[in-house]
C-alpha cells in the first residue's frame, strides 16, 4: 500500500508498477474482487491521501466533484442538494450506507462496474471526467471514459481527479429511476429534459440507460423522438424506448432476460417522463426504486 502526496506522484507510481499496481480509492469493489482472488495486485496506490481530490465545488455553470469524494459526502452535501438534487437523490440510493461511506465517485467510475448508478446519470447529464497522467491533463466525456464492463479508457498512469457536471439550466428537469431487486440494479434510467417557456414542448432531451448491458448508453434516435411538443413525445415514448433499448442492447443475466430488460426500459422511460413533467420544481424530483 502506497500513499502518494500528490497526483503526480501517484501517476508516477502507477506508471512504475504497471499491471502489478492499481489505484485504490475506497475499495468497495476492488477489495472485494481481490478478496475473492479475481484480481491480484502487488501494489495499491491509495489516492485518498492526496490532498485536494476530496472537494465538491460549485462553479458558474458546473459542479465539480473530486475523485475521492465519497458517495455519502455527495448525498449529504448542501451544494449538491441545492444545485443538483438529482445527483444527491441518486447517490442516496447507491448500495447501502456502509458502501456509500467508503466508496468514492472516482472509484465507482474507474472500476466501471456495469451496474453503476452514477455512470448512468452522469452520462445523461453530460458530465466530463478530468484525468491527469504523467504527461498532463485531459478531459473525457462519460461515453469516452467508459469502454465496457470493468474497462475504461484510462492509461495505467492516468487518474480521474474530478467529475465536472454541467449545472442544469432553469428550463431543465432531470430524474433518475432504477429497478432493483438484487444487490445491484437491474436497470437504471436517467432522463434530462429541457422545456420551452410554456412547459409544453421539449427542446432537448437526454436519456441514458444503465445496468442492462456492459456500459450505460444513450441513443440519438431516442433523444430525437423525445424532443418536440409534449403530446407528440408522449405518443412516441414507446418508439423512443425501443430505440434506447436497441442502442443499449441488453444482455441476459441473473438480473433478468434481455427481453425483460427491454420491457423495463419502456416502463421506466414512461415513469421518468411522467415524473420529470409532473410539475415538481426543476431538479427536485424524488427518486423511486
Amino acid at each position: 500500500m502506497h500513499q502518494p502526496k500528490s497526483v503526480g506522484e501517484a501517476a508516477e507510481m502507477l506508471a512504475r508498477f504497471g499491471e502489478k499496481g492499481r489505484l485504490y480509492a475506497g475499495g468497495t469493489e476492488l477489495l472485494l474482487a481481490m478478496k475473492h482472488d479475481l484480481l491480484r495486485y502487488e501494489h495499491l496506490v491509495d489516492i485518498k491521501t492526496v490532498p485536494g481530490l476530496d472537494k465538491i465545488e460549485a462553479k458558474n455553470s458546473s459542479l465539480s466533484i473530486g475523485g475521492t469524494v465519497t458517495h455519502r459526502e455527495i448525498e449529504k452535501s448542501a451544494v449538491v442538494r441545492e444545485r443538483l438534487p438529482v445527483m444527491a437523490e441518486m447517490t442516496r440510493h447507491i448500495a447501502n450506507v456502509r458502501v456509500r461511506a467508503t466508496g468514492t465517485l472516482g472509484g465507482n467510475i474507474c472500476f466501471a462496474e456495469p451496474h453503476s448508478d452514477p455512470a448512468t446519470l452522469l452520462l445523461a447529464l453530460g458530465a466530463v471526467a478530468k484525468v491527469q497522467g504523467k504527461s498532463g491533463e485531459k478531459a473525457l466525456s462519460m461515453s469516452e471514459i467508459l469502454m465496457g464492463a470493468y474497462e475504461t479508457a484510462l492509461a495505467a498512469d492516468e487518474i480521474l481527479t474530478a467529475i465536472e457536471i454541467p449545472l442544469p439550466a432553469k428550463s431543465q428537469r432531470a430524474a433518475y429511476l432504477k429497478f432493483q431487486t438484487h444487490e445491484r440494479p437491474t436497470l437504471g434510467l436517467a432522463l434530462v429534459l429541457s422545456l420551452d417557456e410554456s412547459g409544453r414542448a421539449i427542446t432537448k432531451a437526454a436519456a441514458a440507460v444503465g445496468s442492462v448491458a456492459p456500459k450505460p448508453c444513450r441513443s440519438e434516435q431516442a433523444e430525437a423522438l423525445l424532443t418536440g411538443p409534449r403530446e407528440k413525445v408522449e405518443r412516441q415514448l414507446s418508439e423512443a424506448s425501443g430505440a434506447l433499448a436497441d442502442a443499449a442492447d441488453p444482455v441476459d443475466d441473473l438480473e433478468g432476460s434481455a427481453e425483460y430488460k427491454r420491457h423495463l426500459i419502456g416502463v421506466y422511460l414512461r415513469r421518468a417522463f411522467a415524473q420529470v413533467l409532473s410539475g415538481n420544481p426543476p431538479g427536485r424530483e424524488k427518486i423511486a426504486d
Binding site: 472485494l32 475473492h36 431487486t181 438484487h182 444487490e183 445491484r184 441473473l254
Partner: peptide, 10 residues
C-alpha cells in the same frame, strides 16, 4: 453454480 455468493444470491 452461477450465483454462489451473497452478492448474487438474494
Amino acid at each position: 453454480l452461477m450465483n454462489g455468493s451473497i452478492l448474487d444470491y438474494r
